[in-house]
């Protein structure tokens, strides 16, 4: 798993939840910090901050999360394999910090994945369950963000990785430490939920009328 995106076990172990000051850590090599690693890492700041904002839904917490992500990245820079996917490596660190700090531990495979076998075919059979493309165009960006932020965290994070950040299923699976099939089923369910939320909003906002609304 470490080969693909450079996420090593050392970075992901549970004992790392407590961040210590960089200055106390002999592995941080302060004397050699002004280098390619730091330059590349800071290049992902906006991306990480937006992700943190979507995860925490709070600007102050997002800042804390991003700062701690960089501190941890700096401390464990030796575990990053140069030339691999730094964005995925940073997201893996941030995602683990998020679950440790804000959610009280790493997520288990919870009931959200329970009926992962459900097929979008069911949705296809019921055309009223889906908004039309032109309806989507009339929904404000804020509402789309809100719908994403209302997804359960396990679904939200996979949407962030695959849809917003463009991660492959394989890279997303490595960041989330789950099989590719789990990435696919969570994504599938997240998108269904997004469709429902946006369709509900469109109906309530009068963008579509009752008969076009979702049946149930």
């Amino acid at each position: 798993m470490a080969v693909g995106i450079g996420v090593s076990v050392a970075v992901l172990e549970p004992g790392m939840a407590t961040m210590v000051a960089v200055a106390d850590d002999p592995g941080s090599e302060r004397g050699a910090q002004s280098d390619d690693f730091a330059e590349e890492a800071i290049g992902y700041l906006d991306t990480l901050y937006r992700g943190a904002l979507r995860l925490t839904r709070d600007p102050a917490q997002a800042e804390d999360l991003v700062q701690d992500t960089y501190l941890r990245a700096l401390r464990y820079r030796h575990s990053y394999q140069s030339g691999t996917n730094m964005k995925a490596w940073l997201f893996a660190i941030m995602r683990n910090l998020f679950w440790d700090r804000f959610k009280g531990g790493r997520p288990e495979d919870v009931s959200l994945d329970g009926d992962a076998e459900a097929s979008l075919y069911d949705t296809l059979k019921d055309p009223t369950a889906m908004p039309e493309a032109d309806v989507l165009d009339r929904i404000a960006a804020d509402e789309v963000v809100r719908a994403v932020e209302q997804l359960p965290e396990l679904h939200r994070e996979v949407v962030l990785l695959v849809d917003v950040e463009g991660f492959s299923y394989k890279d997303a699976a490595e960041v989330l430490q789950v099989p590719i099939g789990t990435v696919m089923s969570r994504l599938h369910r997240a998108r269904r939920q997004l469709q429902r939320s946006l369709q509900d909003y469109a109906r309530e906002a009068g963008i579509v009328h009752g008969e076009q609304g979702r049946a149930g």
Binding site: R50, A141, D142, L198
Partner: peptide, 20 residues
């Protein structure tokens, strides 16, 4: 088309904004 549209919409809407 709907699935593709939704994916693009999510990307565009969630991609905006910069770190303080």
């Amino acid at each position: 088309r709907l699935q593709l549209h939704l994916k693009r919409l999510v990307k565009v809407c969630c991609e905006s904004g910069q770190a303080p």
